[in-house]
Design a protein around this nucleic acid. Structure first.
Length: 267
DNA sequence: GTTGAGCGTT
């Protein structure tokens, strides 16, 4: 009766997910159910597994029907020994429905009920332990598949080939967003550079398909004037410079241009 | 058969 996760998320409306970390790779949903069901109505337990090996990834999601019960479970089960390991129970954040608002609401209630020091200690401990684990993971250099965490794309693809260490994105928790204003802070001109559209957009009136490729980019002066006789007419009747021509100018002048210069060109 | 940071399936 407790076969969770067999048919997908059963009822994800008005449920409160807890993330259970540090469980054993052999702990199943049926093992967790009696523990968590003591503190409320558990509507679902899901243990993500590796798609290739089918193994547990070492954490679980326990979904409660009511938020206060979930909060109580966090208080009671966080730090509990399960199968010889100290599990970490916290509210899930990045889930499909991201019950962050409800989570904070219930956390606030919890703060008022008890002396607010428990949750704070728990957060501090998690933070510290996360850093510690990061260091250990770097030194041990085992577990040859931490790449499944780059799950934006290519999650189940080439995990065995691309093993460049620089791929490891360290920007999950950026402690200080504004740090180290490097002296060469100038905005790289390539940032504002035109995305180099299709080369056919060079001039609006260039419909001639007679093979003569008129108005190559190198024949245009930096000031938007055509080189000589062949006039692609960068300005229309209103005197506005065509967008295509602006792109050309940008491409040429970019190495010497500061952003203000580009603005000058645009206006 | 191992492992141990993290956030999720039909």
């Amino acid at each position: 009766m407790s076969h969770f996760g067999r048919s997908g998320p059963p009822d994800i409306s008005d449920t409160y997910s807890l993330l259970v970390l540090n469980i054993t790779f052999r702990t199943t949903a049926d093992d967790l159910f009696p523990l968590f069901d003591k503190y409320g109505k558990v509507v679902d337990i899901f243990i993500p597994r590796d798609r290739r090996t089918g193994e547990s990834r070492g954490f679980a999601f326990v979904r409660y029907k009511y938020g206060d019960e979930a909060s109580k479970a966090v208080d009671r089960l966080d730090g509990r020994m399960v199968d010889g390991r100290e599990i970490t129970v916290q509210f899930a954040k990045y889930g499909p429905h991201a019950e962050r608002m409800h989570r904070d609401d219930y956390r606030d209630r919890d703060y008022r009920r008890r002396s607010r020091s428990r949750s704070y200690d728990r957060y501090e401990r998690d933070r510290y332990r996360g850093r510690d684990r990061d260091y250990r993971r770097r030194s041990r250099s085992r577990s040859a598949s931490p790449d499944y965490k780059s799950r934006r794309k290519g999650r189940y693809d080439d995990e065995r080939h691309s093993r460049s260490p620089s791929r490891r994105s360290p920007a999950r928790h950026s402690p200080s967003p504004r740090r180290s204003p490097s002296p060469k802070k100038s905005i790289s001109p390539q940032r504002i550079a035109s995305p180099r559209k299709s080369p056919r957009v060079e001039s609006p009136d260039n419909h001639s398909r007679d093979g003569r490729r008129s108005a190559s980019p190198h024949s245009v002066s930096p000031h938007g004037r055509p080189d000589s006789s062949r006039s692609p007419s960068p300005r229309n009747s209103n005197g506005d410079v065509s967008v295509a021509h602006l792109e050309l100018c940008s491409e040429i002048e970019l190495p010497n241009l500061s952003p203000t210069n580009i603005v000058f060109y645009l206006f």
